[in-house]
Write a protein that binds this DNA or RNA. Sequence first.
DNA 1: TGGTATATCATGGGAATTCATGGGAATCAA
DNA 2: TTGATTCCCATGAATTCCCATGATATACCA
Lengths: 156, 156
Amino acid sequence: MTSFISTYENKVDKKGRVSVPAAYRSALGSEAYQGVIAYPSLTYPAIEGLGRGTLEELNRRRFDQSLEGGDFAQTLVGRSDDGLVETIMSLASELPFDGEGRIILPARLAEQAGITDCATFVGRGTRFQIWAPDRYLEHQTAEIAALRTRLSGGAT
Amino acid sequence: MTSFISTYENKVDKKGRVSVPAAYRSALGSEAYQGVIAYPSLTYPAIEGLGRGTLEELNRRRFDQSLEGGDFAQTLVGRSDDGLVETIMSLASELPFDGEGRIILPARLAEQAGITDCATFVGRGTRFQIWAPDRYLEHQTAEIAALRTRLSGGAT
DNA sequence: TGGTATATCATGGGAATTCATGGGAATCAA
DNA sequence: TTGATTCCCATGAATTCCCATGATATACCA
């Protein structure tokens, strides 16, 4: 299982290129396709990222499940209550690495996340996110505060 | 299952390197990747440590669980009630051993734990902690006193 | 039992490699 | 041609690798 952890802040140059942290790249090491899948977060001003292998496993499991359930309609015409997955698929881009392990952030995604000249890569386990550094700082502060409250109130 | 026990105090050199106690290293012996995962404790001024295998299993189970439950959206956007795992992933670092079994403490983690030139490794079973020696001493005293009180007050 | 040899371990410093970053040349599309 | 994209190479800084040392513990032998 590919695991993305830790956070890194890298620069975005004039051409829109950013180095994907070496640790993330080596986490993807075994995958045939060298690059990542990116799509906008629907809940935060951020870009979501996946390895290609993760995306494929997701789609395969979803496909299998709809066939086993006999829901052929969903498989063929996507008539499903869960439009979320399909919407994301349409918004997703394949971003290949250049020789130095960089990707080019699609303008639409960068804009939506408010990313200009710096980008923060945030590991989330099986996926990762790319934020504008200042927005992430803000978000992270709130995120940790919420967790601390919960932990001090409940179990360890 | 890897088991970390006992307490060790080691030096941190100018480069931020510390030897991981040999006993901990041999506890990880069977794991393919030689190193540990570290993240800040959210309740103490300390660093928490795990074997990589533990982290991988955590991510794998989370991934499988969301797919089997048909919650594909969670896999894609992490729309979930527990931000706990995702927050920890963002705060965690992979610390590989060098040839001598040392790791480099990330500045952020060391600072948060108040560690400068010495570090105390504390076995906690399936995970371990790294403390500043003086803070740990203090914490340990309180911890033991609290236990004594609880035990003498409760059972015969 | 005493003493020595051997292995393991924590620690230190210097050299070599990796990594992020920047710019220019080559390629492609229109 | 013109604009954009991709490929290739250069650079400095940070990191990792490699070897050396001393201390401690363990094994071995007389």
